[in-house]
Protein backbone atom coordinates (compact mmCIF):
# COMPACT_ATOMS: atom_id res chain seq x y z
CA UNK A 1 0.00 0.00 0.00
CA UNK A 2 2.75 2.34 1.06
CA UNK A 3 4.54 1.56 -2.14
CA UNK A 4 1.55 2.32 -4.32
CA UNK A 5 1.15 5.51 -2.37
CA UNK A 6 4.74 6.54 -2.98
CA UNK A 7 4.46 5.82 -6.70
CA UNK A 8 1.63 8.28 -6.80
CA UNK A 9 3.18 10.89 -4.52
CA UNK A 10 6.55 10.90 -6.27
CA UNK A 11 5.25 10.15 -9.76
CA UNK A 12 7.32 12.84 -11.37
CA UNK A 13 10.53 11.52 -9.87
CA UNK A 14 9.71 7.98 -10.93
CA UNK A 15 8.72 9.01 -14.43
CA UNK A 16 11.99 10.85 -15.07
CA UNK A 17 14.02 8.07 -13.46
CA UNK A 18 12.25 5.38 -15.45
CA UNK A 19 12.73 7.22 -18.74
CA UNK A 20 16.37 7.86 -17.93
CA UNK A 21 16.83 4.22 -16.98
CA UNK A 22 15.32 3.10 -20.27
CA UNK A 23 17.49 5.54 -22.18
CA UNK A 24 20.72 4.41 -20.53
CA UNK A 25 19.86 0.71 -20.78
CA UNK A 26 18.78 0.98 -24.38
CA UNK A 27 21.99 2.73 -25.37
CA UNK A 28 24.06 0.09 -23.59
CA UNK A 29 21.98 -2.71 -25.14
CA UNK A 30 22.57 -1.30 -28.61
CA UNK A 31 26.29 -0.85 -28.04
CA UNK A 32 26.81 -4.25 -26.43
CA UNK A 33 24.51 -5.94 -28.95
CA UNK A 34 26.29 -4.61 -32.01
CA UNK A 35 29.77 -4.93 -30.57
CA UNK A 36 29.03 -8.36 -29.12
CA UNK A 37 27.52 -9.86 -32.25
CA UNK A 38 30.33 -8.49 -34.42
CA UNK A 39 32.93 -9.86 -32.02
CA UNK A 40 31.14 -13.21 -31.93
CA UNK A 41 31.15 -13.38 -35.73
CA UNK A 42 34.80 -12.39 -35.96
CA UNK A 43 36.04 -14.88 -33.40
CA UNK A 44 33.92 -17.69 -34.82
CA UNK A 45 36.46 -17.76 -37.64
CA UNK A 46 39.58 -17.93 -35.51
CA UNK A 47 39.78 -20.51 -32.78
CA UNK A 48 42.80 -18.85 -31.16
CA UNK A 49 41.29 -15.39 -31.12
CA UNK A 50 38.11 -16.92 -29.73
CA UNK A 51 39.92 -18.36 -26.72
CA UNK A 52 41.49 -14.99 -25.95
CA UNK A 53 38.36 -12.92 -26.50
CA UNK A 54 36.11 -15.23 -24.50
CA UNK A 55 38.70 -15.27 -21.73
CA UNK A 56 38.78 -11.49 -21.63
CA UNK A 57 35.00 -11.01 -21.49
CA UNK A 58 34.84 -13.72 -18.86
CA UNK A 59 37.38 -11.95 -16.69
CA UNK A 60 35.61 -8.62 -17.09
CA UNK A 61 32.46 -10.35 -15.98
CA UNK A 62 34.05 -11.37 -12.71
CA UNK A 63 35.11 -7.81 -11.78
CA UNK A 64 32.64 -6.54 -9.17
CA UNK A 65 30.46 -3.96 -10.85
CA UNK A 66 31.18 -1.36 -8.20
CA UNK A 67 34.92 -1.56 -8.78
CA UNK A 68 34.54 -1.46 -12.55
CA UNK A 69 32.66 1.79 -12.13
CA UNK A 70 35.45 2.94 -9.84
CA UNK A 71 38.09 2.13 -12.44
CA UNK A 72 36.18 4.01 -15.10
CA UNK A 73 35.73 7.26 -13.19
CA UNK A 74 39.32 8.49 -13.68
CA UNK A 75 39.06 7.61 -17.38
CA UNK A 76 35.64 8.86 -18.36
CA UNK A 77 34.48 10.87 -15.35
CA UNK A 78 31.14 10.48 -13.67
CA UNK A 79 27.68 10.48 -15.19
CA UNK A 80 25.65 8.66 -17.78
CA UNK A 81 28.50 8.12 -20.19
CA UNK A 82 30.51 6.11 -17.72
CA UNK A 83 27.42 4.15 -16.74
CA UNK A 84 26.72 3.28 -20.37
CA UNK A 85 30.30 2.16 -20.91
CA UNK A 86 30.24 -0.04 -17.81
CA UNK A 87 26.90 -1.61 -18.71
CA UNK A 88 28.07 -2.23 -22.27
CA UNK A 89 31.20 -3.95 -21.08
CA UNK A 90 29.20 -6.17 -18.74
CA UNK A 91 26.62 -6.95 -21.35
CA UNK A 92 29.26 -8.27 -23.72
CA UNK A 93 29.75 -11.66 -22.12
CA UNK A 94 26.37 -13.29 -22.77
CA UNK A 95 26.05 -11.94 -26.29
CA UNK A 96 29.62 -12.68 -27.40
CA UNK A 97 29.51 -16.14 -25.91
CA UNK A 98 26.15 -17.05 -27.38
CA UNK A 99 26.93 -15.64 -30.81
CA UNK A 100 30.15 -17.62 -30.84
CA UNK A 101 28.55 -20.82 -29.57
CA UNK A 102 25.62 -20.50 -31.93
CA UNK A 103 27.81 -19.93 -34.98
CA UNK A 104 30.28 -22.69 -34.19
CA UNK A 105 27.79 -25.40 -33.31
CA UNK A 106 25.84 -25.38 -36.56
CA UNK A 107 25.49 -28.92 -37.92
CA UNK A 108 28.67 -29.58 -39.91
CA UNK A 109 26.92 -31.69 -42.53
CA UNK A 110 24.57 -28.80 -43.32
CA UNK A 111 27.57 -26.50 -43.74
CA UNK A 112 29.18 -29.01 -46.04
CA UNK A 113 26.08 -29.14 -48.22
CA UNK A 114 25.88 -25.36 -48.40
CA UNK A 115 29.51 -25.25 -49.43
CA UNK A 116 29.07 -28.05 -51.95
CA UNK A 117 26.21 -26.17 -53.57
CA UNK A 118 28.49 -23.21 -54.22
CA UNK A 119 27.91 -20.70 -51.42
CA UNK A 120 30.67 -18.13 -50.95
CA UNK A 121 31.90 -17.03 -47.53
CA UNK A 122 29.31 -14.29 -47.07
CA UNK A 123 26.47 -16.50 -48.17
CA UNK A 124 27.61 -19.22 -45.81
CA UNK A 125 27.49 -16.73 -42.95
CA UNK A 126 24.32 -14.83 -43.70
CA UNK A 127 22.16 -17.50 -45.32
CA UNK A 128 23.18 -20.55 -43.33
CA UNK A 129 25.26 -20.01 -40.20
CA UNK A 130 23.66 -16.88 -38.83
CA UNK A 131 20.01 -17.87 -39.23
CA UNK A 132 20.73 -21.30 -37.80
CA UNK A 133 22.53 -19.71 -34.84
CA UNK A 134 19.84 -17.09 -34.32
CA UNK A 135 17.89 -18.88 -31.55
CA UNK A 136 21.05 -19.15 -29.45
CA UNK A 137 22.03 -15.56 -30.22
CA UNK A 138 18.60 -14.28 -29.24
CA UNK A 139 18.69 -16.13 -25.95
CA UNK A 140 22.06 -14.47 -25.22
CA UNK A 141 20.54 -11.15 -26.18
CA UNK A 142 17.66 -11.60 -23.73
CA UNK A 143 20.12 -12.49 -21.05
CA UNK A 144 22.10 -9.37 -21.79
CA UNK A 145 19.09 -7.06 -21.76
CA UNK A 146 17.86 -8.27 -18.40
CA UNK A 147 21.34 -8.00 -16.96
CA UNK A 148 21.90 -4.47 -18.22
CA UNK A 149 18.57 -3.25 -16.90
CA UNK A 150 19.19 -4.78 -13.48
CA UNK A 151 22.75 -3.53 -13.29
CA UNK A 152 21.59 -0.11 -14.38
CA UNK A 153 20.36 0.32 -10.82
CA UNK A 154 23.84 0.87 -9.45
CA UNK A 155 24.81 3.40 -12.10
CA UNK A 156 23.55 6.22 -9.90
CA UNK A 157 26.42 5.57 -7.51
CA UNK A 158 28.62 7.31 -10.02
CA UNK A 159 26.18 10.09 -10.64
CA UNK A 160 24.24 8.65 -13.54
CA UNK A 161 20.48 8.90 -13.78
CA UNK A 162 17.95 6.11 -13.77
CA UNK A 163 15.94 4.27 -11.16
CA UNK A 164 19.07 3.83 -9.10
CA UNK A 165 18.59 7.48 -8.16
CA UNK A 166 15.35 6.63 -6.39
CA UNK A 167 16.95 3.65 -4.69
CA UNK A 168 19.97 5.64 -3.62
CA UNK A 169 17.86 8.47 -2.30
CA UNK A 170 15.77 5.96 -0.34
CA UNK A 171 18.91 4.56 1.24
CA UNK A 172 20.42 7.90 2.19
CA UNK A 173 17.18 9.20 3.67
CA UNK A 174 16.24 5.97 5.47
CA UNK A 175 13.17 5.77 3.27
CA UNK A 176 12.82 2.01 2.70
CA UNK A 177 9.62 2.44 0.73
CA UNK A 178 11.34 4.62 -1.80
CA UNK A 179 14.13 2.09 -2.20
CA UNK A 180 11.68 -0.78 -2.57
CA UNK A 181 9.61 1.14 -5.10
CA UNK A 182 12.67 1.85 -7.24
CA UNK A 183 13.74 -1.77 -7.11
CA UNK A 184 10.30 -2.99 -8.06
CA UNK A 185 10.25 -0.71 -11.06
CA UNK A 186 13.61 -2.05 -12.23
CA UNK A 187 12.38 -5.61 -11.86
CA UNK A 188 9.20 -4.78 -13.76
CA UNK A 189 11.15 -3.10 -16.53
CA UNK A 190 13.37 -6.16 -16.86
CA UNK A 191 10.39 -8.50 -16.91
CA UNK A 192 8.49 -6.52 -19.50
CA UNK A 193 11.55 -6.26 -21.75
CA UNK A 194 12.09 -9.99 -21.45
CA UNK A 195 8.47 -10.69 -22.38
CA UNK A 196 8.70 -8.41 -25.41
CA UNK A 197 11.88 -10.11 -26.53
CA UNK A 198 10.33 -13.52 -26.12
CA UNK A 199 7.59 -12.39 -28.50
CA UNK A 200 10.24 -11.30 -30.97
CA UNK A 201 11.93 -14.65 -30.50
CA UNK A 202 8.70 -16.46 -31.32
CA UNK A 203 8.28 -14.41 -34.49
CA UNK A 204 11.82 -15.25 -35.58
CA UNK A 205 11.27 -18.92 -34.86
CA UNK A 206 8.12 -18.91 -36.92
CA UNK A 207 10.01 -17.31 -39.77
CA UNK A 208 12.60 -20.09 -39.64
CA UNK A 209 10.19 -22.93 -39.03
CA UNK A 210 11.29 -23.77 -35.50
CA UNK A 211 8.61 -24.81 -33.05
Amino acid sequence: MQILQIFWDRRELFATCLLEHIRISLTAVLCAGILGILTGILISRHKKAAGVALGVVNVIYTIPSISLLGFLIPLTGIGNRTAIIALTVYGLLPIVRNTYTGLTTVDATILEVAEGLGSDGRQMLFRIRFPLALPVIISGFRNMVVMIIAMGGIASFIGAGGLGVAIYRGITTYNMTLTAAGSILIALLALVSDRLLSLAEKAVNRRYGIE
Binding site: V113, A114, L117, I128, L132
Partner: peptide, 12 residues
Protein backbone atom coordinates in the same frame (compact mmCIF):
# COMPACT_ATOMS: atom_id res chain seq x y z
CA UNK B 1 24.60 -32.01 -55.87
CA UNK B 2 22.00 -34.28 -54.29
CA UNK B 3 23.41 -35.28 -50.94
CA UNK B 4 23.07 -38.63 -49.24
CA UNK B 5 20.20 -38.28 -46.78
CA UNK B 6 18.72 -35.12 -48.40
CA UNK B 7 20.15 -32.67 -45.82
CA UNK B 8 17.77 -29.87 -46.58
CA UNK B 9 18.36 -26.51 -44.91
CA UNK B 10 16.08 -26.77 -41.87
CA UNK B 11 15.45 -23.02 -41.63
CA UNK B 12 14.23 -22.61 -45.19
Amino acid sequence: YAVQGAKLFPHM
